[in-house]
Structure formats: structure tokens, C-alpha cells
Design a protein around this nucleic acid. Structure first.
Lengths: 341, 341
DNA sequence: CCGCCAAGGTATAGCGCTAAACCTAGCATG
DNA sequence: CATGCTAGGTTTAGCGCTATACCTTGGCGG
């Protein structure tokens, strides 16, 4: 069916290797005239190299895995703010003539399997918690450039790209403190899920301490990153902690649920309670009032991931194996001064 | 580095083909005792088959492409409601032991290249307009099972999965008419982009006609599927057509922008103007008031796409090569009776 | 005039796997 | 006893490509 190197070689009256060299741009070995003749035939015949044959012979696949957790039989958990990163990764990699394989991972061993089976040159780990990354051993990932996103494992096998979560939390909390809030709650998922939440929590605590505000563990709530859980939290918050005037959350979707819950409990935002989200999802700008939130540098994240991976593939590792990207506070309508007593 | 069939064969004292047969579950050829011995060694040594070698030798890759338009150097255009479909596709395919390759397509020839280079068994075309699909010729796709999503090309080379766009529009428009609206505008992107919008438009027209409501082309506006364009449209609508009391839009995000624009122009939803969206995106439930919209069967879409593809791969094509999935109207808070005069 | 080198190739040997044809007991059958 | 069949393998011949070693020229310095 397909045109192969051999066909081209026969038509051009040269050896197969010469065609291979031309197709792969190995300039040194071929005269300009031959090269042009071959290229013309390649175009004419619509020759497309076989990636599997290449990968087999060259022991490099120019394939990068995009590994995403898949809980059991359920669908992939690509949250909306991750989608953008995926799109950007694909573009960057395509520019470098790499391809992306999307793979859900439900058991730990599947990471290894995917890497080995497809002979992946690299992989991006999206949304895995640090434990999974720490469990990867050198035996698992021989020679594969692994980039973990938003992890705080210090596993030297994995390159890491993340936002400055500590700094983002500082920004948000400082903003609330600056507006005059003193009873500021923290809502986010369990720490164990990923170091990200812990870093944000630590940023929050640090700012409280800086301003001499006593830390009250009661104001820290474990809330999943969903609208429903945010809603439930918002409903009970005024009852359980009527003195809370502001909430820092670790996700926009949670914040939006929270605001709806507060409304259901008769509290207005930002009149009675201020809310700050995290991620600056598109949707943050679509709700009313528009959400004050912390924005991550998504394009930067994708670009850094690719850069780190390419550096490792090229063997030029640099000292900094973990990159932390800047964040910014986006002030919109959900954070204001606390209500006058 | 990797363990190969040969290693296992040597250790088990059998030929390489026997191991291959065991690994691939070709029961007939191997005794149970041998099979178990081999499986044990396979487990012990952590053998993982090489996908490239398989794909080369077997002329089938168990790889499915997910082809998405990429405009020039820009990032992939996976809209949020598409992401869910992607996740579901991945899961379904993984269950069947297929893998997914995500690939942005910026030039027409790239579809062919991707198919051939990786020896894809199948591909899902996401978000391409009908023209692109019509341009695919048999030469391009020899033997590849192509499934186009949301297209209305009648190209026999492509299997097609879509929602009942005509019916969805009927549902929405009928709902508005039922509430008493007579001046109902239609807002969506240009028809040329995809047959989807045209089908929705036709559904809208049909219901108007059914109820003896004259069709006014002035009430049809070309608005891109973005918040910004919806906003702009909402701002100018009351000025240009003060008598319009309802708008049917082809996308939630557009509808949400529209509502904000109407508010800016001093019109309230649904008090002054009713709005119906399309897609039932998550965000439709997060805005205030919650958006009345048409829901598509996303899981069904993914499942049908995989089913059609597997049927074609197995050679059991059925007559219906295009599947149309049911839609449902989700009544929430943005559609009500027209204001009393 | 010889040795040597660079330029421009070619020949060979796989990469790891599978499809297909082939082999060989051992046993039942007519 | 020749025949055929089946179970349980083995052998052979690639799939399309790349790495590596090798082979020719012709030109040039010594």
C-alpha cells in the first residue's frame, strides 16, 4: 500500500541508505544534485516515513506520552484549566516534530508499560500526586525524559514544572488582609492529593503570621474541587463560623460553588463575605460578580515542560530541574472590605 | 535494556513464536502447561511487547488518532465540551487495548501524513468542517476507520457521529414559542464552519413556520462562539431590535456573553429577554440565573464513535454509517414568558 | 608516482515482532 | 498397514527503517 524507502531508491537509482540520509537531512553524505532529485521523487510519490519502523530501528520514537490519572473505569480527569496546557504542549511538540500519545493511567505499573511499550522518548505526568511520582524508579524510566506538572516530589528522575503556589496563596491572603479581613478561612482538598495544596496552605499561614493574625485550624476545611462541594461548604459556613468574613479557596470552581452556597445561606459576596479563587479559569470571568482569583501562567507551564524535556533528551541537563512559574492576582468583584460591625 | 520475546523464549526453552502466541492469547497452538510456564516468566521478567515492532510486523498499530484542527501556529482548539468526549474516547479505547494519539492538523495533507506515518488503525476527526472531510479521498485513508464528529459531510469514507442538531433547535425554539414569544432571534457562527449550525438554523425556522410566525432574516445574526462576541451582540441587540423578546443561541458561552451584554444594555434575563443556550456546558449551571439550554449526550457520542470505528475495523459495517444522538432541553432560569406589553 | 584523504556513496546486519508455512509425534480409522 | 488428522509446536521470511562499516573515485601534496 504505502510507498517505502525502497521504492524511492529504485526510482532514483540510488541505494536505500542514500534516500534515508536525504529524508533525514543528513547533509554531509549526499551531493546537492542527488538530494534534489530524491526530494522531488519523494514529493511526487507522496512518501511518508513509517514511524514504527523508525522507532524500531532507531531506538527513539519521537513520541511523548501525556499520562493522566484515570480512576478505575472512569473517564480521564482533565480539568478545564489543564486542557489549555494539553493544547499548548501538543503545539510545541508538533513544532519539534514529536507526537503526543494520550494515555490514562489507572494502575501504577501502567506508567512503565506505556513508556516501554511505545518506546516513548519522554512523558508528561499530569495531575499525579507526589507519591506516584516518588514511586518511579530508575528501572521504570530508563532514559525517558519525565516531566511532572504541579508536583512537589523531589524525585531526581522527574523534571518538575509548577506554579509558585506558595506565592499565589500569599498574594491572595495578603490581598484579603489588606482589605481588612482578620477571620479568613481556607478551603481546599486534602493535602495528600498533591503538594500543591499544602504549599498554598503554607502561603496562607505565613501571611496570617506576618500580620499577627492567630491561626485557627477550625477555619481550614477540606473541600473537594467541585462545584457541589463548594456549594455545600458555602451553605454551612455561615452557621459554623458566622465571624468569617473571607475565604481563600484553591480552585475557581470551588469558589463559585461556595458563592452560590453563601447566597443560599443569605450571605452576599463580597458584601458579607469575600472570596478568592485560584486558576483564573475562563469561567471566573463569566459569573456574577466576576471572581477575584490567582492566575497561573499556563502557556509558560507548557513551554517550560517542553523545554525541560528537550534539554534532557539532548543530554544537556541544567541544575534547576524544577521550574516554578510566577502567578498574578486578578482583582475582580468577589473580594472587598469586611462588613462594618 | 528491554526484555524481548527472544529472552523469554530462551528462558522457557521454547521457540520465540510460541511465546508470541501465548502473549497474544492464541490459545489453540499451545498446551496449558507451556502457556502457564511462559506467562510466569513473562511476569517475572516484566516483559512488555514493543508496540513499534508489532505495528511494523502486523501492519496494524492498535493506535487511533485524535485529529483536531490547529490554526497555524496556534494551540489546539479543544472546546470545553469537547474535552469530555476526549476523555471518554480514551477510556473506551484503552478498554479495548487501543491507544490514542493526539494530533493537531494545520494543513490538509497532515491528516494523511499522520494516518500513514503511524499506521493508524483509525482516527477520530474532531471539529473539522465538512469541506475538509469531503476532501479526503480513498487514496488518503486506505483501510483506516475514520469517524467524524459533528459533521454533516455525507462522505462514505467517514463514519459520522453527531447530535440531533435539527431536533435540538426545534426543542429550544418550540419552548420559546410555547412561552409566548413571537420575535425570536437566532445567534450563531457562520454556516460554512460546519453543517451543525445550519441544521440548528433549519430547526429554528421550521418551528417558526409551524406556528405561523413569519421568518425575519434580520433576526439572524452571525456571532462567533465566544463570550466576547456574545457580549457585543447583547449590547447592540436591544438597540437594533427592541421588539425581540427571546434569543436562541448555538452555544452556552455565547449565551452567557449575550446575557451580560443585555444586562449592560439594561435588559434583564429572563424578565425582558429570554435566552436559550446549547451544549449544557458545566458552566451553564454556574451562572446566575442558570442557563436554559439544550444538552447533548456526550458519553453516547464517545461510545458511538468507538463502536462505529470498531465495527468498521472488524469489517462488519452496517448500513447506518451516520449516527444521530438524542438531545434534551434543560429548563433552567433564562427562559420565561415575554414581558407584558 | 605514490600515499592519503575527502566526498559521495553502497552493503550488511539488525531492531522486535508476526503471518504463514512447515514439521513431527501419536493416535484413530478404514 | 497406509492414511489422515490433530495437538503442539518450529522455521522462515519478512515488515521499513537506521547504524555502522565499508567501498570507490578523483584530486592533491610530497
Amino acid at each position: 500500500m504505502g510507498v517505502t524507502l525502497k521504492d524511492i531508491a529504485a526510482e532514483a537509482g540510488v541505494s536505500l541508505m542514500t534516500v534515508s540520509n536525504v529524508v533525514n537531512g543528513k547533509q554531509a553524505r549526499v551531493s546537492a544534485a542527488t538530494r534534489e532529485r530524491i526530494m522531488r521523487i519523494v514529493k511526487e510519490r507522496g512518501y511518508v516515513p513509517s514511524a514504527s519502523a523508525r522507532s524500531l530501528a532507531a531506538r527513539s520514537s519521537r513520541l511523548v506520552g501525556l499520562l493522566v490519572p484515570a480512576v478505575g473505569e472512569s473517564s480521564l480527569t482533565i480539568d478545564p484549566h489543564t486542557v489549555e496546557v494539553v493544547g499548548m504542549l501538543e503545539r510545541e511538540l508538533r513544532r519539534l516534530d514529536y507526537h503526543l500519545m494520550l494515555r490514562g493511567i489507572s494502575r501504577h505499573g501502567e506508567i512503565t508499560e506505556a513508556l516501554r511499550s511505545w518506546n516513548l522518548d519522554g512523558a508528561v505526568l499530569l495531575g499525579f500526586n507526589d507519591v506516584v511520582i516518588d514511586r518511579l524508579t530508575a528501572a521504570d524510566v530508563g532514559g525517558v525524559a519525565l516531566v511532572a506538572m504541579d508536583s512537589y516530589s523531589e524525585n531526581p528522575l522527574a523534571l518538575e514544572v509548577r506554579s509558585d503556589d506558595f506565592g499565589g496563596a500569599e498574594l491572595a491572603t495578603r490581598h484579603l488582609v489588606g482589605l481588612g479581613h482578620r477571620r479568613i478561612a481556607f478551603a481546599g482538598p486534602a493535602f495528600s492529593a498533591t503538594g500543591v495544596v499544602r504549599r498554598r496552605f503554607e502561603g496562607y499561614r505565613k501571611v496570617l503570621a506576618e500580620h499577627g493574625i492567630g491561626f485557627d485550624p477550625d477555619l481550614v476545611s477540606e473541600v473537594e474541587t467541585t462545584h457541589a462541594d463548594g456549594l455545600a461548604y458555602g451553605r454551612r459556613l455561615p452557621r459554623e463560623h458566622p465571624d468569617v468574613t473571607a475565604v481563600f479557596t484553591t480552585a475557581d470552581i470551588l469558589a463559585i460553588g461556595l458563592i452560590e452556597g453563601l447566597a443560599a445561606a443569605g450571605r452576599s459576596v463580597p458584601g458579607d463575605v469575600s472570596v478568592v479563587g485560584y486558576d483564573n479559569a475562563d469561567l471566573a470571568a463569566y459569573v456574577t460578580p466576576k471572581l477575584t482569583t490567582v492566575a497561573q501562567d499556563l502557556p509558560g507551564k507548557a513551554a517550560e515542560a517542553v523545554r525541560l524535556m528537550m534539554d534532557r533528551l539532548a543530554g544537556r541537563d541544567r541544575p534547576a530541574q524544577a521550574v516554578s512559574l510566577d502567578v498574578a492576582l486578578i482583582e475582580r468583584g468577589t473580594a472587598g472590605p469586611p462588613p462594618a460591625r
